[in-house]
């Protein structure tokens, strides 16, 4: 079953069209990679799914995205509630300048969890789920900025998981990390697939090939090809896809 249904979505920034008539169905509990050259609209597409694009002035949307049967661009939709269900991890780790504990506790507190015991539990399960618990469990009161970049990024994943979303959006979340940290996060993503639907933007084609179940190739704001990852990389239907995954342009 498709948990995210993107339906004739077009996005404009002022006069400039960033996405043109996108139609995509993203299945539940799978990993979908969005690939394409810079400026092709993959980040815009990702940010349309939790409406982070609303932050951009002069942004206009046509068409719709339906999540679990509900239109997210409906007038009555509160983006705060949408983003609780659709979490996001950014390209650069962006922990709040506070303790590790408070970083994770921020989301649950925001949504009304007050009991210390409950929050303690969420902090532990989230950090465990993000595979960073063993490294930080003795220093939960420590400032999160003292962690390494890879640890910070896994902390940010844990922070996103702490509000118990269904969908996790990852915007080139390993682009700023070293190969070892990247490997850890890739393993983590594959593991998270059991519980979450994951959509990831990546510049790293090998990563898309290693991690994702299906891949979407975008070019100039349009979906050129959407197929199971194995097929898209081995037997691309469109010639442009072939040229891109072979590294002939990028």
């Amino acid at each position: 079953m498709n948990v995210i249904q993107i339906d004739k979505l077009s996005v404009y920034y002022g006069d400039q069209q960033a996405l043109n008539n996108i139609n995509l169905g993203i299945p539940e509990k799978s990993i979908t990679a969005l690939i394409g050259p810079s400026g092709c609209g993959k980040s815009t597409l990702l940010r349309s799914i939790n409406r982070m694009n609303d932050q951009v002035p002069l942004m206009k949307v046509k068409g719709d995205i339906v999540i679990s049967g509900v239109s997210i661009y409906g007038k009555e939709v509160r983006t705060e509630m949408l983003r609780k269900r659709v979490g996001m991890v950014f390209q650069l780790p962006n922990p709040f300048p506070s303790s590790i504990y408070d970083n994770i506790a921020y989301g649950p507190r925001l949504h009304g969890t007050r009991k210390k015991k409950e929050i303690d539990e969420i902090v532990e399960t989230s950090l465990r789920a993000a595979a960073v618990w063993d490294e930080v469990k003795d220093n939960l009161k420590q400032n999160s900025l003292s962690l390494s970049g890879g640890q910070q990024q896994r902390l940010c994943i844990a922070r996103a998981l702490a509000v118990n979303p269904d969908i996790l959006l990852m915007d080139e979340s390993t682009a700023a990390l070293d190969p070892l940290s990247t490997q850890k996060i890739e393993e983590l993503i594959k593991d998270l697939k059991k519980e979450y639907t994951i959509v990831m933007v990546t510049h790293n084609l090998a990563q898309a090939a290693r991690v994702s179940d299906q891949t979407t190739f975008l070019l100039d704001g349009e979906v050129i090809e959407f197929a199971p990852t194995v097929d898209l990389f081995s037997t691309p239907v469109d010639q442009r896809t072939g040229n891109y995954v072979m590294g002939r342009f990028g």
């Binding site: 939790n50 982070m52 932050q55 983006t79 705060e80 509630m81 949408l82 983003r83 609780k84 979490g87 996001m88 950014f90 650069l92 962006n94 922990p95 709040f96 300048p97 921020y106 989301g107 925001l110 949504h111 940010c156 922070r159 996103a160 509000v163």
Partner: peptide
């Protein structure tokens, strides 16, 4: 930095 704001917005903060 904007990224801190985005981090909080993405968690559903007003």
């Amino acid at each position: 930095p904007k990224s801190l704001r985005y981090g909080a917005y993405a968690l559903g903060a007003t």
